[in-house]
Design a protein around this nucleic acid. Structure first.
Lengths: 235, 235
DNA sequence: AACGCGTCGATGTGATCACAATATACGCGC
DNA sequence: GCGCGTATATTGTGATCACATCGACGCGTT
């Protein structure tokens, strides 16, 4: 199964941007597991383009730490997460995402709030049916629907790069825990806070939401004495 | 005068990394003014390499928003700063850099503090002699000497990308204000706080330092009704 | 002298070729 | 059967070529 594919919609979009979007999407959804090797030519062949635009997309993802180049050998792969790194990612997410949510609060439209309810419904549905992919998609849609309203592109992009780094690991977390024992999210509280227009309540809900998610990830990181060296190759 | 040059030291460092370092250094020091056009081939010729590694370095800098591609026409240039963007950069810097300083506090070695004193001395010297380049260099050394001690690479890199974005504009600020009427920095307070090992005092000093610098920048942004369309080409 | 239009040059982008370095697979010897 | 060295394949990197597109400049006309 190919986990990456090109969006063949727009005609004049740069190829390397399409490749970037495809790769970023696959990463943020956790479709490419940590430590999974990636090669320029293989990707290029799968996407039906020359290695050139793939190089540019990959260079960009490396800059965002969504991919890494192994030091001695020069293989390209999805980075692994250390405990130290998770703690930093947690701190960063606990700052930007509540900030974005607070900024978005006075700008939330009725339509956006409706989309939030819709996304949360999809999320609950995916949760009860054990659909990990659907859960991650709905959760991502929920959060970034909020962040898009904040009108703060620098913070938005920062949040994006942070999700790009935690994405591959979220799938691992669900693999260990399953969707059954997920703690209750704070989406309902958040929606209520949006409707009453209380930025600080929104901020608090978002921070709890982020914190609890990252605590789960931290537990998984700590619990793996040694990661199984089994590597699946996503092609 | 060529504002970018390759570090010809290490032999096995990738060329595109050297190009990146050279460009990033020039940008962070404000040696390339905002809106200054940049071209792959010109840079490649100046650096004595093929356009290929320059493309990769530039792609990385675009990802970090240190360079931008004009939308309709496809020229490459140093981004301009809007008021909205400065406000976001201020918020971000006021969070990461005090955080880094606080993290660095218990890890500060005698040697690092000595370097701080040294950098601050250079800074004062450059200030009194009106040496803008020397001032920016010393200020950068001072801050990143601290950040390097924090042992938090995610935050460190974030601070770096933020400086990359404000760098070109700092030079503009000094061009408007001159080095004479700079407000007193908080470097002395900070050094004292480091020596007494008080993270919160360090954090407060750093935040004031960042805030006042960014307020100066914001004033300059606001004061320019229309920027002079005069563009110098740095070659 | 001012304006319009066409040409030329320069730009970013993509494809292809070449190369050194390394991982992987294979086969030989023990 | 197992260890190890060699050979092959694949990797990322850099250079060069080709091309569509846009800006700049100059010439011509009014």
């Amino acid at each position: 199964m190919r986990v990456v594919s090109l969006d063949t919609a727009g005609g004049d979009a740069k190829v390397h941007d399409q490749v970037y979007d495809a790769l970023a999407d696959a990463l943020i959804k956790g479709q490419i597991p940590p430590l999974n090797p990636v090669s320029l030519r293989t990707l290029a062949a799968n996407l039906g383009v020359s290695p050139m635009p793939v190089r540019e997309a990959v260079r960009r993802l490396i800059a965002e730490k969504a991919l890494e180049l192994q030091p001695s050998n020069k293989r390209l792969r999805v980075p692994d997460l250390t405990e130290k790194r998770v703690l930093q990612l947690t701190k960063a997410r606990e700052w930007v995402e509540p900030e974005l949510a607070a900024l978005a609060t006075p700008r939330m439209t009725k339509d956006a709030i409706r989309r939030l309810r819709d996304d949360d419904a999809k999320l609950m549905k995916a949760l009860s049916s054990g659909d990990v992919g659907g859960y991650m998609q709905a959760n991502q849609d929920f959060h970034f629907c909020i962040y898009a309203q904040a009108d703060a592109d620098l913070f938005y992009d920062l949040a994006r790069t942070l999700w790009l780094q935690v994405g591959p690991f979220m799938r691992v977390v669900f693999g260990r825990l399953g969707t059954v024992q997920l703690p209750k999210d704070h989406h309902q509280d958040m929606i209520a806070a949006f409707e009453s227009g209380d930025p600080e309540a929104v901020r608090a809900s978002m921070q709890s939401d982020v914190r609890e998610g990252m605590e789960m990830m931290l537990d998984v990181i700590r619990s793996r004495a040694e990661p199984e060296p089994k590597r699946r190759r996503a092609k």
